[in-house]
Design a protein around this nucleic acid. Structure first.
Lengths: 354, 354
DNA sequence: CTGAAAGCGCTTACAG
DNA sequence: CTGAAAGCGCTTACAG
């Protein structure tokens, strides 16, 4: 009898056809306990006689029993899994947040189902439907450096699942938990660093004008100036796409003949910063001597740029981790609660561009 | 009666508490059909009288009915979802393959459950257990530029699920489907490009010595030389980590005083190439005039490097897409089959470094 | 303290 | 062609 079990185990571990997975009934039979007892023992949800308990545990162990999450989910309505809504998986920022989500989820015994929506509201809605149908326990919605389409955020409450926003600060009225990075402080620190270097014509190259992170960083930029009783030249404040090409275009704008060039640039991401540096080079300007440059994101190519790029680092894995913790907290609390936004500071990584 | 349904729908779409999701029973009741009939209509698995069929469809539509995948999976053993095993989510290569997997999966009506294993066999085994327990329909295992831990590949068959390897060419005996990139051809094309430029001392900077992709690319490097009756200087062939720092170290090795420097470098990824370029700069060597450089991966920072980096592009999204197609094909075929490896060619993206 | 039984929401032989 | 019923693998009132 025990022998036949061993054989099964070998089949499972070997390269052969999969054995039939043992069910709770098999464990009950093998341990001489009732299905009820097995369930209670395995879930620790009721005290069970100690000898029964031990036989159940032994049998489960020996059979390699694993409860079927589908059956369990059907009854409990919980699946020990989160849906993670993301725009796409190509973004450096997004993947680092996901890494934090995954790690924290795993540590808490949860799995993560990824649902990219490609910034398409109808895809997002259908993903949300599916996540709900699969009885996810909650949803984490990750925004990247660009804002999510508003309809996507708006679709979240309708799913009827607890959710937390990562990297996106909800409007006052939204009643949503979120974990965000302090973009204002990041913008402040970056700008302040350039001011401390003695620069006084600091350009600001933001992302698309509507981008929330950019707007916050611009506030920090202004604040740093204001604190030193300086007024930035509004002509130095421009918007571009978060790409190398955007940075090159910004350089064309700001370094064109006939205008006084900036002596520093704070770029809202590293791609822009890199493109700007390239633009400087083409104009014959030296970085950092003529133009000091600070980027944002601390991209892993920063050390490889010429010169190595000084950049703001965001605590991205922590954002993911805190989202998970928040979500689990909500799951366990249930009932009424006040939405909460956790704000994490950025830090400056000084290299040679500023 | 219809009115109360409308109210429910509003609750669902609004910001209120989630309504109870309708079940197949609700659809049966609303349409006056049997549960059996509803099931057959919705699955198209048996012909049903046309008027019944239409009433069922209408009711399902109106109620916003979505079959519970958990209940369905419990019976059918299928969940319309794949598990995707990855080392981590930080790799540029991995995320691009994942994007391809996700897109193809979505188009075929499948979801994707991501399971990172951090190159830790025990994490991989437990992820595999979980994926099996959740009744995934199949598994796609994605390797990045570095080889997977062999135990991780070895654990795959034991899960008893169909699986496909992405980016990893299985050994002859492994009997596994896979979709890989033609690293040999990539190495050949890159090297050939440098040779055609007239370079004759071409260094090869690979990843860790055991790395399979590197070894294949080296074969291509040798082949390109052989075709022109050239023999590369073995001293120019070095191994480094796939990082900017690795490239810098390679530059230290190859450009040190007293040795004849290479006039070109083929680096096995863009981070290495970028680090090497930085090393050249520090030695006062011009790229590409003194040293031409070709990287690998076509990283999105390539255009921002100085000079913009010429690099090999791999058809990564296609790798993911073909994995999904292969897997679905296996699911539908079942039974006996011969393992198949699909090999996709790389292409050269010429910028200014070579 | 304990177990038989109902039931979660489906699918699918089975019997009409 | 059609539907009542069994059953997937669990959890948990319910009744002893």
């Amino acid at each position: 009898m025990p022998q036949s079990r061993v054989v099964q185990e070998q089949n499972f571990l070997g390269n052969e056809a999969p054995r039939q997975k043992p069910t709770i009934k098999d464990v009950a039979r093998a341990s001489g306990a009732s299905v009820t007892a097995v369930s209670y023992v395995l879930n620790n949800s009721r005290t069970v006689g100690v000898q029964t308990r031990e036989r159940v545990l032994a049998a489960a162990q020996e059979l390699g029993y694993r409860p079927n999450p589908l059956a369990r989910g059907l009854i409990t309505g919980r699946t020990q899994a989160f849906g993670t809504l993301v725009r796409d998986l190509q973004s450096y920022i997004t993947t680092r947040i996901i890494a934090g989500v995954e790690k924290a989820a795993r540590e808490q015994g949860y799995k993560m189902l990824l649902a990219p929506h490609n910034q398409d509201p109808s895809q997002a809605v259908s993903a949300l439907h599916d996540l709900t149908a699969r009885r996810m326990d909650g949803i984490i919605s990750i925004s990247g450096n660009s804002d999510e389409h508003p309809e996507i955020i708006a679709a979240l409450p309708a799913a009827g699942l607890p959710y937390v926003l990562a990297f996106y600060r909800p409007s006052e009225t939204a009643r949503a938990d979120s974990v965000v990075v302090d973009n204002r402080q990041g913008g402040y620190v970056a700008t302040r660093h350039l001011l401390d270097l003695g620069r006084r014509r600091i350009a600001f190259v933001g992302g698309p004008a509507a981008n929330n992170a950019s707007r916050e960083r611009l506030k920090g930029y202004r604040q740093a100036h204001a604190e030193m009783d300086l007024t930035p030249d509004e002509a130095l404040i421009v918007s571009q796409h978060f790409m190398v090409e955007g940075g090159m275009r910004a350089a064309e704008q700001l370094l064109r003949d006939g205008v006084t060039p900036p002596d520093a640039v704070f770029a809202c991401n590293d791609h822009i910063a890199a493109g700007f540096i390239r633009g400087c080079r083409e104009k014959g300007l030296r970085v950092p001597d003529d133009v000091a440059v600070v980027g944002f994101d601390d991209h892993d190519m920063c050390p490889a740029l010429d010169p190595p790029l000084t950049s703001m680092r965001m605590p991205l894995p922590q954002v993911g981790q805190l989202c998970v913790e928040r979500l689990i907290y909500r799951l366990e609390q249930g009932a009424a609660w006040e939405p909460e936004t956790i704000t994490l500071p950025c830090s400056l990584v000084i290299r040679q561009s500023a």
